[in-house]
Amino acid sequence: MKKKVMYSIIVTLLLFTSLNSFSQAYKKGFKQFNAGVGLLFVGAYASAEFGVDNNIGVGPIVGYTYYNTGLLSGYYGDYGYGQYRVGARGAYHLGETFKIKDDKIDPYIALSIGVVVDRTDINFNANTLEIEYNKRVLPFFNPRFGAAMELTQNLKAYVELGYGGSWMQGGIAFKF
């Protein structure tokens, strides 16, 4: 837990200490739609980003991640469960901060907050011989670091690393 808090503090400090730089690619008013998949756990994610200031975008995020704990724990049977995430995401594009002259590369940090609907407390019902799950709704806080590479003027491919959902995600971003 301490590592998660420390990681979150570092990401937040990076976000606020680099607010004075301005990228040519992300001016106030930009619009972007992101769609991706989880690369370490199976999942699907979508978000929109609306430029509220130079280099800063905010918008909604939704996602689904599937975990199979039966495979991870070595136990017999399928103990898989899904997580649904709904929330808001903010991103800060770091091209100017890192002095990247190639506009085709876009490093960024992002932070998502919201709620996750999850299954927990796996119970084996001896009467029905089935696995039962209890549902819970919890807040989530997902810091991420990513980079996008321009494929065309309005299309990018991206990869993200970070806490929450799948530890690694990849997909495409459409800029409007």
Rank of each mutant, 00 (worst) to 15 (best):
K28L: 06
G29W: 00
F30I: 14
F30C: 14
F30K: 14
K31D: 08
K31Q: 13
K31W: 04
K31L: 11
K31H: 10
Q32W: 05
Q32C: 11
F33D: 06
F33A: 14
F33G: 11
N34C: 07
N34T: 12
A35I: 15
A35D: 02
G36L: 05
G36E: 07
G36M: 05
G36P: 02
G36F: 01
V37E: 10
V37G: 07
V37M: 12
G38M: 13
G38V: 14
G38F: 11
L39G: 05
L39N: 09
L39T: 08
L39Q: 09
L40S: 12
L40T: 15
F41T: 12
V42I: 11
G43H: 04
G43I: 05
G43E: 03
A44Q: 12
A44R: 09
Y45F: 07
Y45E: 07
A46Q: 06
A46C: 10
A46V: 13
A46S: 13
S47K: 07
S47E: 02
A48M: 10
A48G: 15
A48Q: 05
E49S: 15
F50S: 04
F50E: 03
G51Y: 02
G51M: 03
G51E: 01
V52L: 03
V52R: 01
D53H: 06
D53Q: 06
D53T: 02
I56L: 08
I56V: 15
I56K: 07
I56H: 03
I56E: 01
G57F: 00
G57E: 03
G57A: 06
G57Y: 01
V58D: 00
